[in-house]
Design a binder for these strands. Structure first.
Lengths: 140, 140
DNA sequence: AGACAACTTCAAGTAAACTTGAAGTCAATA
DNA sequence: TATTGACTTCAAGTTTACTTGAAGTTGTCT
């Protein structure tokens, strides 16, 4: 497969694939002239990367996971740790979601007057701050 | 309160508070000489901002929520929409968490051989890609 | 009064994860 | 064979949310 095919199959732009290769996250199996050739298992690898990203790993962390040999050899403790981290995150998000739903329904004149909302605020402030930014996806 | 007090009470560095003011997220109530003075309700506001951040809103979105009058007048539809969005996110994270736990326990030689893991991969690839980066917190 | 810690502004720097642009190469099609 | 569209590299730009540094000001304590 050439990069275009990987791109269309994975949904990732070619530039991202090149970038991932540069970062050591994927590798091309050779070249046809100048052009990279990819084995089809790169798609599985990309899925794995997507998984990692979704779980909150940085590209660096992900790269470290399967750097040595090539196939993912993630250490179990790290997985457990990440799972626990995710768990906390989930609890937070659930509180947040419920809070938002409540706020949307709450008859209090300002959300600030609502005790439930106030409790939510306390939770929010306690949290370790995580940055989350969104990709702006262009539909041009 | 001067900025130092807001900083220590909120846990946010003064630079962040200035930045938030510049972005219109908070406002100082006046100056004592050069120095900003903050009303203590700024803390509540900061909690609200933290809440928004945790819920995945960008600073711009948050600013828009209470730009008009000053007090948070978030439209209910937006809240519901965000709650739903969060909900999807949560489901995803739950799947991820379970997948990670499973992977950590799975006896399969490579996670890739494990059907559960493979299912997880499929989920991961379907997801809208969100960028999440972490604050590097310095413990100097 | 004088020192000093804490404030001020403003410009520039940082990190992550990509994207974009320019300039060039090339395999396949007409 | 000439064109073309898809690829190539490399450097530089983008976004978000801040942080850092320099240079200057000032309230407060002694």
């Amino acid at each position: 497969m050439d990069i275009g095919e990987v791109a269309s199959r994975s949904g990732l732009p070619a530039s991202t694939l090149r970038y991932y290769e540069e970062r050591g996250l994927i590798q091309s199996t050779g070249r046809h002239g100048l052009r990279r050739l990819f084995d089809k298992n790169v798609l599985e690898r990309l899925a794995l990367i997507a998984l990692g990203r979704n779980a909150g790993f940085s590209l660096g962390e992900i790269a470290a996971m399967f750097s040595a040999d090539g196939r993912p050899q993630i250490d179990r403790d790290q997985l457990f740790a990440k799972a626990d981290e995710l768990d906390k995150n989930i609890k937070q998000l659930v509180a947040m979601r419920d809070g938002l739903r409540h706020a949307a329904n709450c008859p209090a004149p300002s959300h600030l007057e609502c005790p439930k909302f106030q409790r939510l605020l306390k939770v929010a402030m306690k949290k370790p701050i995580k940055r989350r930014t969104k990709l702006t996806l262009k539909t041009e």
